[in-house]
Design a protein around this nucleic acid. Structure first.
Lengths: 168, 168
DNA sequence: GACGGGATCGCCGGGATAATTA
DNA sequence: TCTAATTATCCCGGCGATCCCG
């Protein structure tokens, strides 16, 4: 809705027509249409943020069942994929749980700079579909650890936590 | 993938960041990201869904048997010839397998420009009998590699993949 | 961007292991 | 000091693209 700070993006013609065909009222902006199509409008997001219990288990369980991790080449890829699924399953829970940290390093932040500032060569990466970044320069054991701590703080059951973290 | 007929739309900054955060790989276009988020069929996806099994083995096997590669002077010529045969044997399979890429470069595209944009001095060449272009500035090992990856993604058996890639 | 082919070598990402600190 | 936890250096293998050679 805010017209300040509009950004320009390019879309192919077919996609453009698809967006245009979803106009609900005369003069509706591309932003508004996209927000509706992406189920992203601010109100929905705010509502979700307040929503407490995760109805946990769905997204990650599916992920395990569908064997999505097998597609990923490396431990880092599997780690990143799990985090992306966890975030999307419960953004608010993720937000609260993401303050876990090590002795000097912080593991999650909403900017690359914050992670770089709290350690050397942490190799931060953005978590797809979320505003968060994670540290990446750790051995596989610690990656499992981070996932386990995060999931515990988000309220997942032990068995599931175990299975997910071992699948990295 | 087609870059023709791009349209420009304006989105607010928050939406822009949301779209950007869903990037799957370096250089991915806004169109591609949005298509994924909106669950619109990508052409490659549509192709994959329709494509039955490859009926693999025919064209390339013949090629090997007929010793067609012996006619080619250079590794590049043999590389290009194999790609041409692979495409004609299974265009849809080729289309969906052709998204393999390196750390920075993309290996296949439907335009010379796309390949030039994703690396330096990649020396793209058009694949005969197809709408595709490949990168050519690689050592022979990598050419073998590219063929092997491509054939694997197209569903060819290991033994055949081995024989074809070694014949470069 | 106009010589083409492609080996060689430098660079980078992944992540185990060595170093450090509680 | 000894151990356990955490950090981050550094090695290895893979990729890119410069540059040499025919």
């Amino acid at each position: 809705m805010p017209e300040n700070m509009m950004k320009t993006i390019e879309v192919d013609e077919e996609l453009y027509r698809y967006i245009a065909s979803n106009t609900r009222h005369i003069g509706e902006s591309a932003s508004d249409i996209l927000r509706r199509l992406l189920k992203l409008d601010t109100q929905a997001q705010a509502a979700r943020a307040i929503t407490p219990p995760p109805a946990a288990g769905q997204g990650i369980s599916q992920m395990l069942a569908a064997n999505e991790l097998a597609e990923q080449e490396s431990a880092i890829d599997r780690f990143m994929h799990i985090l992306s699924v966890l975030y999307r399953e419960n953004p608010a829970g993720f937000a609260q749980a993401s303050d876990i940290k090590g002795r000097k390093r912080i593991y999650f932040a909403d900017s690359e700079a914050a992670l770089l500032a709290a350690g050397n060569t942490t190799k931060p990466k953005a978590i797809e579909g979320s505003p968060y970044w994670v540290i990446t320069n750790t051995n596989t054991g610690r990656k499992r650890n981070i996932i386990a701590q995060l999931m515990a703080a988000m309220g997942y059951p032990h068995g599931l936590i175990e299975r997910v973290s071992q699948s990295i």
